[in-house]
Amino acid sequence: MILVEHLTHIYAPGTPLALTSLEDVSLHIEEGEFVVLAGATGSGKSTLVQHFNGLLLPTAGRVLVGGRDTRDKKVRRDLWRTVGLLFQNPEQQLFEESVFAEVAFACRNLGLDEKTVAVRACRALEMVGLEPDRYRALSPFALSRGQQQLVALAGLLAYQPPVLVLDEPTSGLDPAAREHIWQLLKKLQQAGHTVVVITHHMEDAARFAGRVVVLHRGKIYRQGTPRQVFSDPGGLRAVGLDVPMPCELMYCLQQKGLPVKSGIITLDEAELELKNLAMG
C-alpha cells in the first residue's frame, strides 16, 4: 500500500539550518496492516508520515502510495482521499467555526450530499465518544485539548480513507478514551483499513500493533512483531524507548531467580504467567 524506497529528507537543504531528518529509509506497509511507529523525540516519525500523504516530498528516494509516486503533482492532489493524516497537534488541523463543520469538512470535499455528510459526521463523533448533540455546535477552540484531538480524529473517520495515518492520536486522552480509540482503530483495521499510528505508549503498541517500526536518528533501528521488538530492553533503552511495564516486571522477576517465561508483553499475559507460576 505504501512503499518507501531509500527515502532521505533534509529540511531547509543548502541553508545553514539544513537538517537531515530521515536518511535512506526503506519500508513497505502492506494493505490492511496495523503498524506502530515508535522512536525518541526528534527521531523523524512525524517527518516520515508526512511523506505518506505528500505533505512532504523526498529529498532523495521515493514514496509510492498504491503504486503511485507522491512526487507527481496530479497524484498528490488526490492523495488525501486514500491517505488520511492526523497531525500531532490538533491545533494544526482545526480551523472551522463549529465541531460539525470541522468533522464534515473532508466529506463535503468528497462531494457527498448534505444529508449523507450529516449522517457520517454524527456517526464519526459517536465513534470517538463525543455525543453529537452536545458537541456539534461548539467551536473547536472552546474545547479541551483532549476533546480537540478527538474532534480532529472524527474528521478523518467521517470520510473513511482506506489508509489512516495518525500522529500520536492518544497523547492527550484520558485512560478510558485512550483505550477506546485503540480498540476503535483495531476494529477499523479488521474492517480492512490500513492503520499507521505513532505513539510513545509502549503498552498500547504491544497490545495492538501487528508490526512495530522503531526509528532512531532518522533511520530504521528495528522492526518486527511487538514480541520481537520488545525482546531487547537494552537496545530499546539505548534509543530512548522502553519495554511495556508487564515486560519489565517479568524481567525483574527473572533476575530474582523466578522461572518466568520470556516474551510476555501485555498485562493479561503477565497475569496468566504469574498464575501458572503459582500453580508450580
Partner: peptide
C-alpha cells in the same frame, strides 16, 4: 500541564 504527553519513555522518566 501535561508536560510529558509528547515525550518518549526515556524523556518522560
Amino acid at each position: 500541564d501535561e508536560p510529558t504527553a509528547m515525550l518518549d519513555p526515556a524523556g518522560r522518566r
